[in-house]
Amino acid sequence: MMYLSVKPDLPTVEDVLPYLRQIHSNARYSNFGPLSTELEAGLLSAFGSADTAERCVCVSNATSGLTAALLAAGVNGKVAVPAFTFPASLGAVCSAGATPVIFDVSIDKWAFDEIIIEDILKSENISAVMIVEAFGILTNIENLIRMCLSHGVKVIIDSAAGLGVRRTGRVVHPDVFEIFSMHATKPLGIGEGGCVFMHNSRVSNFRAAINFALPVHQDHTVYWGFNGKMSEYHAAVGLAQLRRRHVLLQQRQGVVTRYIEQIKLLDGLIFSREVAASPWQFFPIRLPDEQTTESFVDLAAQKGVEIRRYYRPSLASMYQNFAHNSCLSSEQLSKTMCALPVRSGNAIAEMDEIIDAVLDSLKGAMNYA
């Protein structure tokens, strides 16, 4: 038996059935239907900031949310994208008709920091910066956001795996959008879907962007769009899942707490200790070097545990024509980062065996007695 790195945990059929009956009764299946609207309100209440100007809009998936945010913000020039991220980040920029410019990240933060952002704004004529919250670990990025806004640059926050915890350090502003995934593999998964938090002044443009630029009003600045709406069926799963959010979060954060208590005894591993900062799709750790990483992955596989590698290879390797530089930090991270499995729901019973196998494999790879 192989324990997969990521295992979906969705509501039961019984949990979703009442909402499916509502869909049948409403005879409304898409196009910003009542369940989708209810889910938006629920997500805003659960995870929104204290700013009353903030709104939430559901989308068909997080990638469409990234693209629509760029369209709604009127971005048509260069967009700075970190080299250490999932390829969808770059794909969304291309889909919006903008030009990605790939930059390196901080090897310590696994993401952009103030120095890198400053270099980006000085070295390129940038229209927007895509700040990626690596692995869904939400950090205080208020300074980064304000730095971009002070230069008239839009901010797109890719927090794909971060839906499930309160957002900190967020600036609610017409030029700031934050996007989350609700893919089946995410902590608050619904199958396919996503949501986007934004300033209320951008909602009309954003909805137009995910609805073929319809309806056309004089106050719209979006002149083309695509079909990025969430169906009522996915919203039904989302509403059922939202009711489970406290238990899911408690279980997943509990697993990460157990990991930290064990692996903090091993020298040479780098990982986040901010348990409350993420709903934890998985638990990312950085190993000392590529050889140790490869050995760990192999040993874990022999014990029946899949260890995935994120984000590998880096975007600078995959799309060299868009790379601003060689992105050495991102390359090193892509060779040494691993995702440890995290479970919730019925599958949480697997964690004892998984953690034991992970620890034995780490010790073996790092030559512990």
Rank of each mutant, 00 (worst) to 15 (best):
F180N: 05
H183D: 10
I270A: 00
A72E: 03
K335R: 15
P87G: 12
G91E: 08
G304A: 07
A160L: 04
G304F: 12
A128D: 00
H246S: 14
I260S: 08
A316E: 13
V165R: 08
S123M: 05
G74L: 08
L269R: 03
A72D: 11
S123Q: 14
Y3H: 15
L315G: 01
A369K: 11
N227G: 05
A357Y: 05
Q22C: 13
A357R: 09
L265H: 13
L10E: 11
A365E: 00
Q218A: 11
G238Y: 13
N200Y: 08
E331N: 15
M2T: 15
G42F: 10
A161T: 05
L239Y: 03
F206K: 03
F86E: 10
A301D: 12
V16E: 09
A53S: 11
P187G: 04
W280K: 07
F32E: 13
L188K: 01
S326P: 00
I348S: 14
I131Q: 00
F112S: 01
E232P: 08
I263H: 04
G152N: 03
I263G: 02
D267F: 02
I102A: 04
L44N: 09
G364H: 07
L43T: 02
A62F: 14
A72Q: 03
T63I: 09
W224A: 08
S334H: 10
E118I: 00
M318A: 13
Q218G: 07
V297Q: 09
G42M: 09
S330Q: 02
K78Y: 05
T292V: 12
L71Q: 04
I141M: 02
D175S: 14
S326T: 11
A96T: 04
N227L: 03
D267Q: 00
A365P: 03
V275Y: 06
R245N: 11
E192N: 13
R55T: 05
F282Y: 15
I115S: 08
A73S: 14
I156V: 13
V256W: 00
V75N: 06
I307L: 08
G304L: 02
K78G: 11
N140W: 05
